[in-house]
Design a protein around this nucleic acid. Sequence first.
DNA 1: GCTCAGGGCATTTTT
DNA 2: TGCCCTGAGC
Length: 771
Amino acid sequence: MFDYLQELNEAQREAVLRTEGPALVIAGAGSGKTRVLTYRIANLLKQGAKPSSILSLTFTNKAAKEMKERIAKVAGEQTARYLWMGTFHSIFARILRYESETIGYPSNFTIYDSADSKSLIKTVIKSLELDVKIYKPGTVLSRISMAKNNLITPNIYTNSAEIRKVDKSIRMPAIAEIYKEYTKRCFLSGAMDFDDLLLKTNMLFRDHPDVLQRYQERFAYVMVDEYQDTNYSQYLIVKKLAAAHKNICVVGDDAQSIYSFRGARIENILNFKSDYPGHKTFKLEQNYRSTQTIVNAANSIIVQNKKQIPKNTFSENDLGNPIKVISAITDNEEGFLVVQEIVQTQLRDHYKFEDYAILYRTNAQSRIFEESLRKRNVPYKIYGGLSFYARKEIKDLLSYCRMTINPADNEALKRVINYPARGIGATTLTKLETAAVNQETTIWKIITDLPTINHASLNKGTAAKILNFVGIIQRFHKLADENDAFDTVKAIAEQTGILKELYTDKSPEGLSRHDNIQELLNGIQEFSINAKELGEPEKLENYLEDVALLTDQDNDKDEDKNKVTLMTVHSAKGLEFKNVFVVGMEENLFPSNQSGDKKPEALEEERRLFYVAITRAEQNVCLSFANQRYKWGNLDFCNPSRFLEELDEKYIDSSGMQNSSRKAQTLSPNEQKPQGFASRKAPTSLKSPQTQNILNKKLVSLKETSRRQNTFEGDDASKIQAGMVVEHQRFGQGKVLQIEGTAPNIKATVFFKSGQQKQLLLKYAKLKIKG
DNA sequence: GCTCAGGGCATTTTT
DNA sequence: TGCCCTGAGC
């Protein structure tokens, strides 16, 4: 017996020790799942299994990294390094690079992110002379993605009457053609999208039994985390790989399956038993994370689902506080009350800000809470929205890098051929692209073969500019050959003039772009140094392999410590916080109403979503909703989510709902009817009648002028923050240096471009936020 | 090739 | 409302 076995409970220990044969581990929220996986691997290693014979798949880099670190602690860093541990995508990208010859791809193939895919799809739609307004690239991409994840190739797609019927019914009968052309162009560009990494792996294993056999033999042990989130493509790969040794261990929780919209099949975990005869099931039912109240309340919701594996999760922690429910009149008030609760409990119970999370259904809901937090000077960090790697400046620089490694990469080429501007405009690009399509080749081939350019009827000046661009890329190619990733990218940033251009731009946006580029360079430097220390390849192509599958959630920065976390429920999965606020608990956001057009499966998933949300909390859960909410400029009247009713009273502290002064403000019956369009008025009880007057007047005049003019005064002036660039009707553009006072007497010190510095009372000033 | 106004449009998201 | 796309106009 190893000493770590004593840290495990009965069910956990059994799951760790049963190393041979198929095993299903049902791991409820907070039941020590990662611990089991870690020790299971450690145990295998101690039994003498070779690290390189263990394949362990996760969904996020973060999960993989965390597990790797834990195993390194138990089994030693050297051993941990040789484990095949990573995300589905990164592991299979690795395998595909090894086997690239077999499938006819270059080993340095580019991985297209969703933006690249979307942009290519748009190009394809246009080239097929279809209407982009009808064929929305996003929708088309998701249809193609669904197809790929179900192993439906363009040919199968074209020949499937059923699929074509669906396409017709959504008025996009030509998706099959788009899919075909998209696939062709990806191949020409030497590129794979995210779904391809799984699809091509499946095809590799299907068409080349010898290759499959090699990997089957290598991976004596296969482990999958979050098995309830696997799609069909992932499911099949796992099944094929585990077929020889049958030592497969999947870990998951059907109650936390919330990703059906992106192809996850809860059936995969539900059907494990029939898929793997001779399997053994282990249920981790003790929750170590949350209070009894939280666990019981969560269970009371989830038991109502029909499709699930029966289990009895429980907590032996304290009973804990009841779940607090806050009812607010408006969304603004909701923000105010939630932040109030944070500030109060933080002082009273000595919590840190990092102990709090505000979870919501959609990213758009974050704004109100951001505002409220800012007003009270509560530090916060927000997940979601624009990712670091999706920023224009980052994508631009990385596109140069991609061009350097794989010049066939059309999407990268299109981004940078005229950035920084070198006089190669849209017209020229269209000509080149047409030529490329006609000759079934890449733009790079066209522009490196000048006689063809002349065919494309370009004038001399343009041809010279193109030639110059080709020279630049070829130089980078040589640079990348001779230098490590950092030196290469640094040279690229300098020689393209990107660095210089951003350096001269002194606007706040320009500064932030410059900072981002610096941050990217720092990251690459870190990569180069690490790689050298570990004796791993340190070239640009190695860095690009990593970065294509990276997201910004993967790096936690020090400056983000001790801040309230704001994120969607979906992205909170796998995380835990002492105190969790689930906000926007309205019917339309957490739809629990069966009478709607929701399918029963969808309703069950909403329940699981709610379950995931509240089981993130260790100690306190607070649910909040607003009776009215502005949505797209209209006032929506909302009902609280039915989940609030499904919760037994004994779990609830409803003091936040019974505040009589709030009740008195409830809308009168005739106001409660949902209206098609409600005139926008300042609605919250938090504003003085005086302020309301100002706002009403202001908003009327706003409408009269233009809805683009974001002018703010009175209370809304709080939107104006130090550092913002604003436009004043009389003084022109300026930067806000300082903000003081409270509404309606907010004073702003603004430094204008004209050189003068003014102190403005925002009540009287008309400022427009720039950008 | 850039800027700006107007139209259309709004889940959840990892890789 | 606010974002993104597009077409007009310079």
